[in-house]
Simulated assay, not measured.
Amino acid sequence: MDNVDLDVLRRLAQWRREGHKVVLGTVTRTWGSAPRPIGAMVAVRGDGSIAGSVSGGCIEDDLSDKARAGAWPTDVPSVVRYGVSADEATRFGLPCGGTLELVLEPVADHSGVEELLAELTRGHRVLRRLDLATGQAVLETASDRADTLSLTASELAATHGPRWRLLIIGAGQMSQYLAQMALALDYEVIVCDPREEYSQGWEVPGARLVTTMPDDTVTEMRPDRHTAIVALTHDPKLDDLALLEALKSQAFYVGAIGSRANQAKRRERLVEFDLTRDDVARLHGPVGLRIGARTPPEIAVAILAHMTAERYGFHKLEFEAPDAGA
């Protein structure tokens, strides 16, 4: 599920600490055009306060009204649908007659929400199984990076946590901006830098720092189609080591900082090893979209924009990678 819902869980946990009753809603099915994806979450406090979103606001308004009226589940989870009829679709603001199904669960100690929040804060991926008859939840380690959400007559099973990974080679200033922004975009961020003078000063909460050699780090990660690798040291001895392994992997995005002239030299170096021309052609270098970026945070935006385009299959963009800073 989209880890942006981490904020929903934080708010929910805070409300519970303050003594409020809270219901957690999870989108489990959609038909037609739905405003929010499966897995989206919303928390509703007993006084009608809302955290998160499952629609453009109309469904949240209805949930809020029901909370204030006490017309919501108090003991065990329930399944509700919005927009089944044309009139309801109009009333609840669902586009094109879309339909939204939610599981609404009253949160209690046995819901395991605080434990789930702790695991997600550590960057872990968790499979949560909710017993619909009792409201009891069990947490398990997610076995892979595929998203799971299934609803049966007896159980809601949902995967939570970051689905995508970003390995950054180098712990310099630009890496700090890139890591911070990537965390906000639901990436698990790993930063690799064996240089003590850089690794000692690394301070980005939520991003894991490793000091192993870049090629060993890439090999150990076993990059899959949910992995991006970006080399930012400007040191061929480090960047090229990572790229040699990354370009042979299934990583959906492999990029390296450097001017066009330096990138041409890098490509010639890479084909001297066990990489084919097709392997090397996968390299995005200079890395990022050409948006006029010059400062480290601007270049980080350009890199993440390009990663996002590749992630969603927008390969043919009118932009080109920046020449200078990246």
Rank of each mutant, 00 (worst) to 15 (best):
S249Q: 02
A231L: 03
T74M: 14
T28R: 09
V254C: 01
R91I: 04
Y312Q: 14
P35E: 05
A157T: 06
Y82W: 03
A246M: 08
G135L: 01
R122P: 06
G292T: 11
V4C: 14
G52A: 10
Y82R: 00
G19S: 05
A231W: 03
V218W: 08
L243G: 03
R145K: 10
W15T: 08
L275N: 00
G70W: 05
T233E: 07
V76S: 04
D147K: 08
P205N: 06
T121Y: 10
P297N: 06
V76P: 02
R290I: 13
V107C: 09
T308V: 13
V280Y: 02
S33M: 06
Y187M: 07
M181L: 14
E114W: 00
V271R: 00
L183F: 06
S49K: 15
V280E: 03
K21R: 15
E203H: 15
A302N: 02
V103G: 11
S64M: 02
A146K: 08
P37D: 14
R91A: 06
T30E: 10
D7Y: 14
L24V: 01
T212M: 15
C58K: 11
A184D: 09
R129C: 12
K66F: 10
T212G: 15
L100N: 06
G56I: 07
R16D: 01
R290C: 12
V280R: 06
P73I: 08
R282P: 12
F273S: 13
A157G: 01
R10M: 11
T99W: 12
T148I: 13
R10Q: 14
E298K: 07
H124M: 13
D65W: 10
D193H: 10
A142I: 02
H284M: 01
W202H: 11
V218L: 03
R294S: 15
D215W: 14
G83S: 07
W15H: 10
H226V: 10
I38Y: 01
V126C: 01
R290P: 11
G25R: 02
A40Q: 01
D235C: 04
L156Y: 05
R165V: 00
V103F: 10
L167G: 04
A43S: 09
P236H: 07
D278M: 12
K21Q: 12
T227Y: 05
G255H: 03
M1D: 04
D109M: 06
Q14G: 06
V84G: 00
T90W: 11
R294A: 15
G285Q: 02
S199H: 14
A305Q: 05
T152I: 12
D186Y: 04
L178Q: 02
A157N: 07
A326E: 13
V189F: 07
V22R: 02
V80A: 12
R145M: 10
A153F: 05
L289D: 03
A246K: 08
C58D: 11
V218F: 08
N3E: 09
Y312R: 13
Y177D: 13
A256L: 03
D239C: 01
D193Q: 00
A300P: 07
G56F: 01
A67C: 05
A179W: 02
N262V: 04
D62K: 12
A231V: 02
E298P: 00
V126W: 04
Q136L: 14
S55N: 10
P77R: 09
A89D: 06
A184F: 11
W202L: 09
M181Y: 12
D186G: 12
